[in-house]
């Protein structure tokens, strides 16, 4: 096993890409961590509304949902339910094998989610009423959509889930990604986002950068910005060709 680095690379933060590229990039970052021990964080958007299915969900899981008809769809490496990625920021963090944050269990969810809650409170000038980790989870029901599910690791605002995450664990390393829902989407009108619920909260333009830094620092990492090189872009493009979806 390679020695894990304590310096986190922040990559491709604040940019929007097609779904297959986003999933390919996250998988490539996971593979890079396995090869080099490099932790990474990225906070990104989607260039058009896209459905991502949890790894074990069947392709027809949302066929009966008219709101998502015709949307691009991808399959995540991680588990959990389907997400309609539209008005949100998505984060991914990759923890290399041997890093204490990669230990089995749910602590990684907890640390990252608390860091986002704290970051939002800082931006709001104080704690946001109702925003916190879910206190009572009902994990018995498994609707197709992630934001309709209830898990102890969720971040909620009042009774509404605004941040949910999932993981892929591979040879001791962890890819964790999650969606911070900002506003309701016509493709998932049953869910509301943080800006719907807290209209006085105005996220700054550099919020993705702040979120990435906050997540990295919460995991005890130092920060390093290193853009993806042309060679790396080619590797991600090759990975993209392997991604299932449209």
């Amino acid at each position: 096993m390679v020695t894990p680095s304590s310096t986190c690379r922040i990559v491709e933060t604040g940019t929007a890409h097609p779904g297959r590229w986003n999933m390919a990039c996250d998988e490539w970052l996971l593979n890079m961590a396995l090869q080099s021990g490099q932790p990474t964080v990225r906070v990104y958007a989607w260039s058009r509304p896209t459905v991502s299915l949890g790894y074990f969900q069947k392709p027809d899981a949302l066929d009966s949902n008219p709101h998502v008809a015709g949307l691009d769809h991808v399959r995540r490496l991680s588990g959990g339910g389907a997400i309609v990625h539209h008005h949100e920021w998505t984060y991914s963090c990759v923890v290399p094998a041997g890093d204490p944050n990669a230990a089995p269990g749910t602590d990684l969810y907890d640390v990252v989610h608390r860091s986002v809650i704290d970051q939002l409170a800082t931006l709001a000038g104080g704690p946001i009423a109702g925003l916190g980790l879910r206190e009572i989870a009902d994990g018995t029901d498994k609707p197709a959509l992630c934001f309709a599910r209830s898990a102890a690791e969720d971040v909620v605002c009042g009774k509404h889930k605004v941040l949910g995450s999932a993981q892929r664990r591979r040879r001791g390393a962890v890819l964790q990604h999650g969606s911070l829902l900002l506003r309701s989407s016509s493709h998932a009108p049953e869910f509301v986002g943080l800006e719907d619920l807290v209209p006085e909260l105005v996220l700054p333009e550099d919020f993705p950068e702040l979120m990435a830094r906050t997540i990295a620092m919460s995991l005890g990492w130092q920060l390093a910005h290193k853009p993806i090189s042309n060679v790396e872009l080619q590797e991600i493009a090759q990975q993209t060709d392997l991604q299932p979806g449209t």
């Binding site: 074990f56 991680s78 588990g79 898990a151 949910g164 995450s165 999932a166 993981q167 664990r169 040879r171």
Partner: peptide, 13 residues
């Protein structure tokens, strides 16, 4: 093989 728990998918070796 693979297993999923608490939204985490893990590989089996």
């Amino acid at each position: 093989g693979e297993v999923e728990s608490v939204k985490a998918v893990s590989d089996l070796y």
